[in-house]
Amino acid sequence: MQPISSVKGKAYPLGLKNVDTDIIIPAVWLKTISRSGLGKGAFQTLRGVAGNVFDDPAYAGAPILIAGDNFGCGSSREHAAWAMADLGISAVIAPSFSDIFSGNAFKNGLLAIVLPQDAIDRLMEVAKTDDIHIDLETQTVTTPFQDRFAFEIDPFRKHCLINGVDEIGLTLKSSDAISAYENKISASQPWLSPNQA
């Protein structure tokens, strides 16, 4: 994972609620065996509608997306995070995210920033004309108009994002603890080991 500590630039003012992962990347795009190239399919159904924010030249190449409640609901497809990253999006700001999407976003260094609806409403306005600045170190979203919105983030995730930590490598350092757990369980609950069908 590439380290990320701030994102500054234009933002797509999408605002839509319940943006599900089928909207972010339809199932037809899931047949790939690679992580790259999914930007072409990102938000395909929304892009079919005239006047959509993704094809509006005013927002071309925006690194931020602003959305409504429950962003990323639906399937567990990490392709959603890959597609957004491939489209050039580095951060999403919404009032809430589905649990699985926010985990997938984190694993790919895509910031999923939670702010209340009134802050979202304000940022939707600002995005029409000006840049938005997300700073992970100070946990703030700011605009050129003195707006300053603080957000919460899990300290472990913040650490991993800023330092670009390889999470598997980190967990493998706990191999001894995992082995100890396995030994304890195989003694106390031997039936947990599945019979091979």
Binding site: S76, E78, A81, I100, G103, L172
Partner: peptide, 16 residues
Amino acid sequence: FGIGTSEVEHVLATQT
């Protein structure tokens, strides 16, 4: 619970 592909890889490698 459902997990993303990075977590699939994490579980395959670490069972955690």
